[in-house]
């Protein structure tokens, strides 16, 4: 393993503290030697005002309006950058799960991926926005191409608490309405939810002509179900506890789980969304390369 590649290994990342450091490690490891993005976004044309939300670049605050109304509004321009990336991070309780085989919990892994993508995107002068959600949207950071935006993104992500249920369908509909600008919607979630509802949310994104990349973050234990001894499975997200002999159940569980994954995959394909399954014990380069290929697709459209 080359020196930089080891930073893509979740085990290595787990030893690093702080998302920024992790993100930097990932991206440096992945894109070492790559050229900067050839896409320079620019715009001078004023489009509209909108209310300030934390994380917005203060450079775009319309101080005149502030002087008149004491309210902070931002000036918005057409085509701030040539690429906008929306990172939708699932912070529901199920994302907290971490098996013994994995070095990071699904949430941590997803955070790493999100952070790395944000870093990468910002490095390339593109804009990145972030939404964290469980059964509702917890935080929404508008996309920005400002390198200092990264700090805010990372802060929001680090602050997020995974302790609620998921409800992807309505969230996606909501966000699809709110994310005005076309871009790449990167969903980082285990998607343990009502799949048809989730897919209809995706459809909404596609309707808004977003490019959608679904990073399906799964723990290896969820995929392999390697348990041997009698186990009390304590349900997350208000599901009941179950005491059972996992050996006897393994086959049936795996069938159910594969059916779920297949449903998601088929749904994504139908929506022409990219589906990428991420095992939390695998290096993160898969996530990055998938993203980059999506971005390339977007750029060439």
């Amino acid at each position: 393993m080359d020196a930089y590649q080891k930073y893509l290994d979740p085990r290595t990342l787990a030893r690093l503290h702080g998302l920024e450091l992790r993100a930097r490690s990932i991206v440096e490891g992945y894109v070492a030697g790559m050229h900067r993005s050839p896409y320079h976004g620019f715009s001078v044309e004023f489009a509209e005002h909108r209310e300030y939300v934390p994380g917005d670049d203060l450079r775009y605050v319309d101080w005149k309006v502030f002087g008149k109304t004491d309210k902070i509004y931002l000036k918005q321009y057409e085509e701030e950058t040539n690429l906008v990336c929306y990172l939708l991070l699932d912070t529901s309780e199920s994302m907290r799960y971490k098996s013994e085989q994995a070095a990071l919990s699904k949430l941590e892994y997803a955070q790493c991926v999100a952070a790395a993508l944000a870093y990468l995107t910002l490095q390339q002068q593109d804009s990145v926005g972030l939404a964290t959600f469980d059964q509702e949207v917890r935080t929404l950071l508008r996309p920005s191409g400002n390198p200092s935006h990264l700090k805010q993104l990372l802060h929001v992500m680090e602050e997020s608490r995974a302790d609620r249920k998921t409800s992807t369908g309505p969230i996606f509909h909501d966000l699809a309405e709110r994310l005005k600008k076309r871009g790449i919607v990167v969903i980082l979630s285990d998607l343990f939810d009502d799949v048809p509802a989730m897919l209809s949310g995706l459809k909404h994104f596609r309707h808004r002509r977003h490019e959608v990349v679904v990073f399906h973050v799964l723990d290896p234990a969820e995929l392999d179900f390697p348990f041997q001894r009698t186990t009390l499975f304590k349900g997350l997200e208000q599901l009941p506890d179950v005491l059972s002999d996992p050996r006897a159940l393994r086959k049936a569980y795996l069938a159910e789980f594969q059916a779920f994954i297949r449903q998601v995959q088929l749904g994504c394909r139908a929506q022409r969304a990219d589906y990428v399954q991420l095992r939390t014990d695998q290096p993160l380069d898969l996530a990055l390369s998938s993203y980059l290929s999506s971005r390339l697709t977007r750029a060439t459209q």
Binding site: E93, S94, M95, R96, Y97, S99, K106, D190, F192, D219, E222, F227, R229, T230, T231, L232, F233, K234, G235, L236, E237, L239, P240, V242, L243, S244, D245, A248, L249, A252, Y253, A255, E256, F257, F260
Partner: peptide
């Protein structure tokens, strides 16, 4: 004893486990 001396873990993918149990409980 095995049932008593079980281990406990939190489990995220519970709905699929529940579905598996529901379909197989009789056989099990």
């Amino acid at each position: 004893l095995n049932r008593r001396r079980h281990r406990e873990i939190e489990w995220a993918a519970m709905q699929y486990l529940l579905a598996a149990i529901r379909k197989n409980s009789r056989r099990l």
